[in-house]
């Protein structure tokens, strides 16, 4: 357990470059009414290769924005984003992104959806389909190849999204509240499966969630962000729970409970601030 102060530059190992390195990143948006909104300010974050990092923080603190910066969908206003030692320009190669809302293509069958990445990269149809079948088996969706997404349950669609990302064998997997739309049981099952899948190729993971329990159960490292505007890293916690973990059971372990209490202390004040802001806004509006 260490409440490490923010480290700049080098990865924890000190040798290999970090998989992800955000250095002094500020992100401003121009809102539709012309004013400037600072979503992130002076954010530092490193994720080592193969590390599972969870980000928690109140709504609107800039978690999703952080992921779009790493993926290359957006550029930082100030600071640098480096992935595997290379500054990000354009879409970051070797990155997978699982979105909060369904982003599988509704007009493609499950098989075609999963085969999409290889097809985009020029793999032949037969090879891409073979790889897609393989991944569908791994996420437990064999036999559903010909279905359209609307014919699947929410959990199954998430599995398709996972297979669709993982088939590209990304070195970095970004996940934006991927399971938040699922019911509690499905969510626990999916978390477990995610850990098993992660173990297959061991990408560095940045997993955004508002659920602290989920974050601790999954991650090697939990990052707490401050409330927006100008969200930044408040504290980082190493999770020294042994692996392999069983997500449904780990929450009863004393070590888990201790970590939970400690991190919740840091998170709660930020949630309170964010909540106070929204109630201020509603009070001002009424």
């Amino acid at each position: 357990m260490s409440t490490s102060p923010q480290r700049r530059g080098a990865s924890p190992a000190g040798l290999a470059p970090s998989a992800i390195d955000l250095d002094g990143v500020t992100k401003r948006f121009t809102t539709p009414n012309g004013s400037v909104y600072t979503a992130l300010s002076d954010l530092d974050l490193q994720v080592a290769p193969g590390e599972f990092c969870a980000i928690v923080g109140p709504t609107g603190c800039g978690k999703s924005t952080t992921l779009t910066l790493v993926s290359g969908l957006e550029r930082p206003s100030v600071g640098t984003v480096t992935v595997h030692g290379e500054p990000v320009s354009g879409i970051t190669p070797g990155v997978g992104f699982v979105f909060q809302n369904d982003a599988v293509l509704p007009w493609k069958s499950v098989l075609d959806n999963v085969a999409l990445g290889p097809r985009f990269r020029g793999t032949s149809k037969t090879q891409a389909n073979a790889a897609a079948r393989d991944w569908l088996r791994r996420v437990g969706l064999s036999g559903f190849e010909d279905r359209f997404p609307h014919q699947l349950s929410g959990g199954m669609r998430k599995r398709v999204a996972l297979a669709q990302s993982l088939i590209n064998e990304p070195q970095i997997l970004l996940m934006d509240e991927p399971f938040s739309a699922l019911d509690v049981q499905t969510r626990a099952i999916m978390s477990n499966e995610l850990l098993q899948l992660w173990d297959l190729t061991r990408p560095a993971v940045v997993f955004v969630t508002h659920d602290l329990e989920e974050a601790i159960a999954l991650a090697d490292k939990v990052v707490v962000m401050t409330a927006g505007p100008g969200g930044t890293v408040k504290a980082t916690y190493d999770i020294d729970l042994p692996r392999p973990r069983v997500v449904q059971e780990i929450r009863f372990e004393p070590r888990f409970v201790a970590l939970y209490h400690q991190i919740w202390e840091a998170l709660r004040s930020e949630v309170d601030i964010a909540y106070a802001q929204t109630t201020d806004v509603t009070r001002a509006a009424s």
Binding site: L73, V95, F97, A103, L105, L116, F120, R121, N168
Partner: peptide, 9 residues
């Protein structure tokens, strides 16, 4: 965004 990240031109 999803298709772009999957490698689509």
């Amino acid at each position: 965004a999803n298709a772009t990240i999957l490698g689509g031109s």
